[in-house]
């Protein structure tokens, strides 16, 4: 498992000295994001507030930091770059901005990286505590669940902790980790805790990966992050129809609007999910409300 010391060591290698000094003053779990802008200051967003580092990188330095963070493998990850972010060692996510090279409506690549947003992945044991009662039925079978929330509300962290708990209960869990954010595999070993009964397919696109795991690993629970397009939705539907429970996440502020999207609407229509979990906006890892497969709220509104 990735410790704060390892994360600090990794970041210290890739950041200018003035930033490293500030990073060393932080405790485990404090750092949430690092924002780097060409011509602006480097900001460290922590649980307590924002730290402004006394260093203003040039555009070239922003590019160098991005290269260093990606272990000089940005060139090989053009596909990921085109979707706006790259996953780093340890499961951290680096969002990138710069000059986009387009051909017609297609993004071909990114040059002159001007801004970075590094979101620090955290192993938050207990993130799924409030989710667990909704995740299994009275027979211990996992219920297919979709976690919906805005970026930064802790969807992935909650999903990771939930799958770990299910795996520890003895369920066979298969994870399709397209962007290496759930398990942060490194040389075949997960760097984040995903439980003892979990198999991880790393770096594979979701639609092919879900089918692969279904055929190869006979899972009881299939897990994947961020359903994006119709192909992902189709693969989830196939898995659910095969009798396997699916845990997934999707972006959205409100459940109704999120589920009306083309990707998710067929899943709702087919009643693929037994539970919908909406995360509270503006907080991390807090459940706003849980709905059943008929979109009826379960229990009272959480935290109210």
């Amino acid at each position: 498992m990735v410790t704060w010391q390892e994360t600090l060591h990794f970041l210290s290698h890739c950041m200018p000295g003035q930033v490293v000094k500030q990073l060393r003053g932080l405790k485990e779990g404090e750092l949430r994001e690092i924002r780097v802008r060409g011509g602006g200051r480097i900001l460290l967003l922590t649980a307590e507030g924002t730290i402004v580092c006394p260093f203003a990188p040039s555009q070239q330095q922003v590019s160098q930091i991005a290269e260093a963070l990606s272990e000089h493998a940005l060139y090989a990850r053009a596909e990921e770059q085109r979707s706006g972010f790259v996953t780093l060692r340890g499961g951290h996510r680096m969002g990138i901005c710069g000059r986009v090279i387009c051909q017609g409506q297609t993004v071909r690549g990114l040059r002159e990286i001007s801004s970075l947003c590094v979101r620090i992945a955290g192993q938050w044991r207990g993130a799924a505590d409030r989710l667990m009662p909704y995740l299994t039925d009275e027979n211990g079978r996992c219920l297919s669940t979709l976690i919906v929330g805005l970026p930064g509300t802790g969807k992935t962290t909650m999903l990771r902790d939930g799958l770990r708990r299910l795996s520890e209960k003895g369920l066979r869990v298969s994870v399709v980790d397209e962007r290496s954010e759930l398990a942060a595999m490194c040389e075949g070993v997960p760097q984040l805790e995903v439980g003892p009964n979990t198999d991880v397919l790393d770096g594979c696109c979701k639609d092919a990966g879900l089918r692969w795991m279904l055929r190869a690993m006979s899972p009881e629970v299939l897990v994947t992050d961020e359903l994006r397009d119709a192909l992902d939705g189709q693969a989830v539907l196939e898995a659910v129809r095969s009798g396997v429970s699916v845990l997934a996440t999707a972006h959205g502020r409100e459940l109704e609007t999120a589920l009306c999207r083309g990707t998710l609407f067929p899943l709702v229509q087919s009643k693929a999910f037994d539970r919908y979990v909406l995360l509270r906006e503006g907080s991390v890892g807090e459940i706003a409300r849980v709905y059943d497969g008929q979109m009826q709220p379960l229990d009272r509104e959480e935290g109210v």
């Binding site: 493998a73 060139y75 090989a76």
Partner: peptide, 11 residues
Amino acid sequence: MLIEERMGLGQ
């Protein structure tokens, strides 16, 4: 290796 392996430059 640049084409096939897609690893970091150090590796």
